[in-house]
Every structure is written in structure tokens, then in C-alpha cells.
Nucleic acid binder design. Structure first.
Length: 293
DNA sequence: AACACGTGGAC
DNA sequence: TGTCCAAGTGT
């Protein structure tokens, strides 16, 4: 452990001031709701794909109450092809909860955020930090990779987040809340732009001289193979096809319209049942199917 | 703790 | 072409 907080945070903050991307949810006029929507959309999803959808959402639903007033199916439809559509459903549920329990204002309290559907440890810390300027360890995949390299000296963090990582992230947090919040977003940005998973741009790194991975000669990852997620032919792909039919339809659709998008009937029924169980598709009394009301 | 959960761009 | 990966959460 070759770290004192100042030695890493200072250069990263300076680098961020000069190289941060100009993203709308970081603008001075961004609301906590805008930040929250961005954080949910960005889960496992690249910035470039989120940008246009985020703009549509914020223009259409500028407040949690505006979204809560619409059927959840509208959220699912407007989610488009971002993937993991249950996020849209949970964001709608969160909007309802915020409207009912918090008077329509996104809570700044970490515990209150954590209690909202679809918001876990990372997102609660991110919203509290980015939207409310609070001091929290914000540990996402970018930050975990940066710390693994710079501090621990290995190419990739462990598969599952460890207590040690949380402790390390907390130990690096600047004392001032406002500075801590800037460090949180700066460390993420460094991971997203410079300390990337593949082909890191070490020549552009503000902490190259303090990087333990660099000091060790950038040894390649040595550990159990990192999970490769197959997709073609899976229930996931089948669910995606099924839901796409509903998203693109104007109203309810009959069973045949769903049947034609997947040939394996057993798998198709299983996937449809799953979508219904998840609340992403409503089976109507007349035998047709629709996005949820 | 491991697994399910979408989608598409990059190499 | 297939693999890897992108600001995780819920079970």
C-alpha cells in the first residue's frame, strides 16, 4: 500500500477539471431527478447509448411526479433499446414512491435512496454524492478498476466487490464533502476515459508515476477466467424479442404476433411467463398482451 | 454466492 | 466471427 489520499486525489482532480466530458446530467442546471435517471440508465449501459434516451425522458418527465402519473408501460416503451427493461419498471416505481413518500422530491438521504426500487449501494452513493454533494465512497466498475491498478497493482479488481475495496475507497475520500463528491466523479471519469478495461491510455494518466500496476510492469491479469456472457439463443434474447414486439406496437397484440419472433415454443412460453411475472407484460382478459397499465 | 437480466459497439 | 465489455440490482 503506497498511498496517502492526497497523492492520488490531487492529480486526478486536476485532470478532471481539464478533461471531464460535458454530460447533461453534470450540468449546473441538472436536477437530482435528472441525476437519478442518468444513474439508472447508465447501469451496465454505455454513455453514448444513454444520451438521447435521457434527453427524451427528462423533456417528457421533468419530475418524478410527471413519470408517476403515467402507466409504467409508457416508461418501458420509452426505455427503447437500452436493455434490462426491468430498470424502467423500477424507475417508474421509484418515481411513484418519491411522489408518495417524499413529496415529489428525490431524497438526499443515502438510506432513503437505498430504500427505493432499483437503487442499490452504488446508485444511492452516486446520487447522494453527485446530486447532493455528500461524502460517500462511490464504488462502480470504473473506480474499482482504477483502485485495483493504481493502489493494489493488479490489472483487474476481483469478480465480486470485497470489503477491502470498500475500506480502501473510504480511506481515499477527501474530508470536505464537496471535494469528496468531485473526487468520486473524477475517479469514475478517469476509469471511463483513461484507465479503461482494455488498452488503457497510460500515457495520458495523471497518476502514472504513482501507479502500482505501472511500477510492477503492468502484469497481465492472473486469476480465474472472467465470466463471458453468452447471449444468442438464451432466454434473455427471447425476452428481448418478445418485449420489442410490445414496445413497437401501438396497442395490445395477439399471441401470433409474439409467436413469430421465436421458434422454440417451450422457451418462448417460459420467457413470456417470465416477462408477465416481472410485470413487463400484461396478459389481457381477451387473450391479447400489452405493456403494463 | 452465484446467477439472471438486454443490447450493440469495438477489436 | 466471437468475445469482451458498458456508471449494477435483486433474488
Amino acid at each position: 500500500m503506497r498511498t496517502s489520499p492526497i497523492s492520488i486525489t490531487e492529480p486526478v482532480l486536476a485532470w478532471y477539471a481539464a478533461h471531464a466530458r460535458d454530460l447533461p446530467w453534470r450540468a449546473a442546471d441538472a436536477t437530482p431527478w435528472g441525476v437519478l435517471v442518468s444513474e439508472i440508465m447508465l447501469q451496465q449501459t454505455p454513455v453514448a447509448r444513454v444520451l438521447p434516451v435521457w434527453r427524451e425522458w427528462l423533456a417528457r418527465w421533468p419530475t418524478p411526479a410527471a413519470l408517476a402519473a403515467e402507466p409504467s408501460g409508457e416508461a418501458v416503451r420509452a426505455w427503447g433499446r437500452l436493455g434490462y427493461p426491468r430498470r424502467a419498471l423500477r424507475l417508474h416505481q421509484a418515481a411513484v414512491a418519491i411522489t408518495e413518500r417524499h413529496g415529489g422530491a428525490v431524497p438526499g438521504d443515502h438510506a432513503a435512496l437505498l430504500a427505493l426500487p432499483g437503487i442499490g449501494s452504488y446508485t444511492a452513493a452516486a446520487v447522494a454524492s453527485f446530486a447532493f454533494g455528500q461524502r460517500h465512497a462511490v464504488l462502480d466498475t470504473n473506480v474499482r478498476r482504477v483502485l485495483a491498478r493504481v493502489v493494489t497493482g493488479v490489472e483487474y479488481p476481483p469478480k465480486a466487490q470485497t470489503r477491502a475495496e470498500v475500506t480502501l475507497a473510504e480511506s481515499l475520500l477527501p474530508a470536505e464533502p464537496a471535494t469528496a463528491a468531485r473526487w468520486a466523479v473524477a475517479a469514475m471519469e478517469l476509469g471511463a476515459l483513461v484507465c479503461t478495461a482494455r488498452s488503457p491510455r497510460c500515457v495520458d494518466c495523471p497518476v502514472l508515476e504513482r501507479c502500482e500496476w505501472q511500477a510492477r510492469g503492468r502484469p497481465a491479469y492472473d486469476g480465474p477466467p472472467r465470466r463471458g456472457q453468452s447471449y444468442a439463443g438464451t432466454d434473455r434474447q427471447c425476452r428481448g424479442r418478445l418485449l420489442a414486439v410490445l414496445r413497437e406496437a401501438h396497442g395490445p397484440v395477439g399471441k401470433p404476433a409474439l409467436d413469430v419472433v421465436w421458434s422454440d415454443a417451450v422457451q418462448r412460453e417460459r420467457a413470456l411467463d417470465g416477462l408477465i411475472a416481472d410485470g413487463l407484460i400484461d396478459p389481457l382478459d381477451d387473450g391479447r398482451y400489452a405493456l403494463p397499465a
